[in-house]
Structures are given as structure tokens and as C-alpha cells.
Nucleic acid binder design. Structure first.
Lengths: 225, 225
DNA sequence: ATAGCTACGATTGGATCCAATTTGTTTGGA
DNA sequence: TCCAAACAAATTGGATCCAATCGTAGCTAT
């Protein structure tokens, strides 16, 4: 049971990401509409949205199917997010940090470092850090009054793995996760310092590297000081 | 009178870009449907698409209006295109030029240099060069079998000024245009050389600079040899 | 006179109906 | 036995109908 239209899109996205609809599986309007307890019209709208986002893909002439992503696709989507967030960070550094953004970022840094500094990590704290991480990225991206970059990133965030809050982490391997989060948190600190000192080229490079953390968390970063 | 759905989107896009619907103007479903000679349903689908593309924007709670772009928005959209095409070029350089892509790019280079080399430019030849330019960019972007970057760029190309074929040029100022095209054509040559020699970092930088040509055509480029 | 509330009109969102197209299956012929 | 053609079933796309909601205008009361 879903209420309004945007929640239908969200519900379908969730089902796709959760694997409820398998990659490659064909989606027809009527079964989906019945499953969601709505009529075909909003489902058609939602399909249109998801198709444009790239989560659904035409197969044959009329049918839609869940897009299958190869590992190479994932790598590529992460690169895209990296250059876009890098651009956002560079422009922010060039404009200079306004007090509000600076405060928000500092808040994220503090919250994140508190979590990461704990002796032992729980799954809850990993979730909490993920939330902080997402907020850190969103703050940088949304700092631009022109919504152009934010929109561009939003248009690509549909890819589950490409969104900033998907650092996640094989459940159970808490030690490895802790290590990874420590590195990511360090990245955040470096990014903030570069932002504050207006090192635009450097902050762009840092953000681009940081996007890769899901892939190479023992990354090229040389923690400086 | 419009036939299928995608042509409705195209028709509306054209009307918006042509200024038939002014920036900020509110668009209601019924008048548009009547103007196009179709029912409300396909118009709603098209509105959804255009909204996601960013050409339409919600105003208030339900209404849609043609988005107004500030000069800063334009600058920003061009930056976005720059980093995305830069990424595409870098990945292409890292993979190496396959013969087919290489041939296509060389063809663009030859065609473009022929036009630019003419003594006098006409508006037709500017149009022809524009087409070659668009093909050059598309070849680089589409060279990746993974459609991820191409899709990401396509999702942003709706902004009229942000698409690669909008180098254009105040009609009448043919001399200035000629000069600008010469520079752009030189950029293409530099990009190709860097691609061929696998200088991935350099080609990325070149593409990013090249995207700015509409703004600063007396750009940072130092024509090398 | 102004502010707030109510009611009506306009417009969007959802449901259902109808038409067109596609795809799969079955049957017949080579 | 295999291929092709035609038919049937399913599914998408378009049109219309109905309901819900938003915005505005007008009226009333303080």
C-alpha cells in the first residue's frame, strides 16, 4: 500500500535494490500495480522515472526490465560520482566556505570522529556513521545555490552502489569495517581542511579519490600530517 | 499534431528551447494537450520526463513551470559537461583507442579541418562544423561499452546550452566565429593526440578546458607545437 | 480597513476503458 | 521435421472519467 506518486518510485527503487525484482527481470505494469495496490497510471509514471534514471531498461520494443549492472558499470558509476562531487567541492572551495556550510561540515566531522573513535564498532554505529557520511557529502553538494550539480548528482544516485551512503560493508566483518571507516573519516577531515584553505584543485582530487573508497579503501591517500 | 510519446517530449523540448514557452511560464496539462492534439495522459508522461531533465520545475505545490536558467546555471552546467566528458576521455585513453573509434575521430578531424581551413566561412559551414563537433564529442563519449557515462551525459544534455553542439555563435559575426572554430578545432586535434598517446591525465584536462570554449574561447590552451 | 475563513473554480492525480501493437503459440504446408 | 504464417492472448499506449487538492476570490467579523 502506497500513498502518493513519489513514494511509488521510492518503493519500486527499494524493491529493485533489495533484489525483490531481480536484475534482468521483466516488469509489467499490471502485476506491479496490483502488488502496490494502485492503478496502472501512477505505475506508468514511476516506470518512466525509473527508466530515465537507468534502473529500468527497454528490452525488445515495449517491455521494461530491471537493468543488469556489470562490475565495470559499478566502477564507472563511481567514477562519475567522483568527478561530480569533485567538481562540487572545487567550486565550493573557489567560492569559499560560508559559515553555515562550515558549521554543518564541522558537525559532521565531529559526529563521525566520535563514532569512529569508539573502541568497538556495532552495526548500529556503522549505520549512524553512514548517515553522517551521507550528510557530509550532501552538505558539500547542496552548498551551491544553483542546483545544477546537485541535480546532476541526484540524477545518477539511483545506482544503488553509486550513492554516497553506500559505503556499506559486509556485515559481520566489523574490524575491517572499522578500519575502512577510519580511513573514510580521515578523508573527510582532509577534504574539510582543503575546503577551508581554499585549495580547490586539491579538494577536487581528494573528493575524487574518496569516492573510490568502496573499491580501494587502502587507497592512494597519503594521510599527510 | 504529434504521433508517439517520445516525439511529444521532443516537441515540448523544442518549444521550450525556441522560447515558445518563456522561462518561468507556467505549463498546464490541458492547454498543452490541446495544442499538441493529444490527450492529457501522454502530456503528463512528457512533463514527468522534462521535469526530471530539469527543463520543467515545480512551482508551489502542484504547478510546473519552465525553468529559468541564470548565467551562473549555464556556467555550472558547462562545468558538469566538462568533467563528464573529461572522464570519458580519460577512460578512453586508459583503455587505448580501438581502431574503429580512432578512424571515426580522424574522420571528424579531417572534416572539421577542411571546413575551418576555408578562406571564408558561411553560416552553412558553421552548421556543418557544429555537426562534426557533435560527432567528435559523441564518439569519445560513446566509445565506452558501458553506457554509464554516456547516460550520465545524456541526462544533462537537455540543457540547451550544455549540449556539445551548442558552440553557437552570434549570427553575423562570422569572423569572430571563424576564429573560435579554429581554436575549437585545434582543441580537437590536441585531444586526439593525447588520446592516441594514452596521456590520460592530459586528455582529461584538455576536454575539461575545451568544454569552456563557449565561455572563454581565448582560453588557457597553449597551442603547443 | 484588514485579517481570517469559507466556498468555488481550476487543475492535478488516480482509475478505468478502449485501441493498437507485439509476442508467443499453434497449425498447416513444404 | 522444420519453417512460416496466422491467430490469439497479453501488454502497452492513449482517452476519458472521477476524485482530491490547491489557490483564489469574496465575504464577514472584529
Amino acid at each position: 500500500m502506497v500513498s502518493d506518486n513519489s513514494s511509488i518510485v521510492a518503493a519500486l527503487r527499494k524493491r529493485i535494490i533489495d533484489g525483490h525484482y531481480a536484475p534482468g527481470e521483466r516488469l509489467a505494469e499490471i502485476p506491479v500495480a496490483e502488488a502496490l495496490g494502485v492503478s496502472r497510471t501512477p505505475v506508468r509514471l514511476a516506470f518512466r522515472t525509473l527508466q530515465q534514471e537507468g534502473l529500468l531498461q527497454r528490452v525488445g520494443k515495449r517491455a521494461l526490465a530491471v537493468r543488469v549492472f556489470s562490475p565495470a558499470d559499478v566502477q564507472c558509476a563511481i567514477e562519475v560520482r567522483g568527478v561530480l562531487e569533485g567538481l562540487a567541492a572545487r567550486l565550493l572551495a573557489e567560492r569559499g566556505l560560508d559559515p553555515k556550510t562550515r558549521a554543518a561540515l564541522l558537525d559532521c566531522l565531529r559526529a563521525g570522529e566520535t563514532i569512529v573513535g569508539m573502541a568497538q564498532l556495532s552495526e548500529e554505529s556503522i549505520g549512524a556513521w553512514s548517515e553522517v557520511n551521507a550528510r557530509f557529502h550532501a552538505t558539500i553538494v547542496d552548498a551551491d545555490e544553483r542546483r545544477v550539480i546537485a541535480d546532476a548528482i541526484a540524477r545518477n544516485n539511483h545506482l544503488p552502489f553509486a550513492s554516497a551512503d553506500s559505503i556499506i560493508i559486509e556485515r559481520g566483518e566489523l574490524d575491517k569495517a572499522h578500519q575502512r571507516l577510519r580511513i573514510a573519516q580521515l578523508h573527510h577531515r582532509l577534504v574539510f581542511d582543503a575546503l577551508e584553505s581554499g585549495e580547490s584543485a586539491r579538494v577536487e582530487m581528494l573528493m575524487r579519490e574518496h569516492a573510490q573508497i568502496g573499491l580501494r579503501y587502502d587507497s592512494l591517500f597519503k594521510p599527510i600530517e
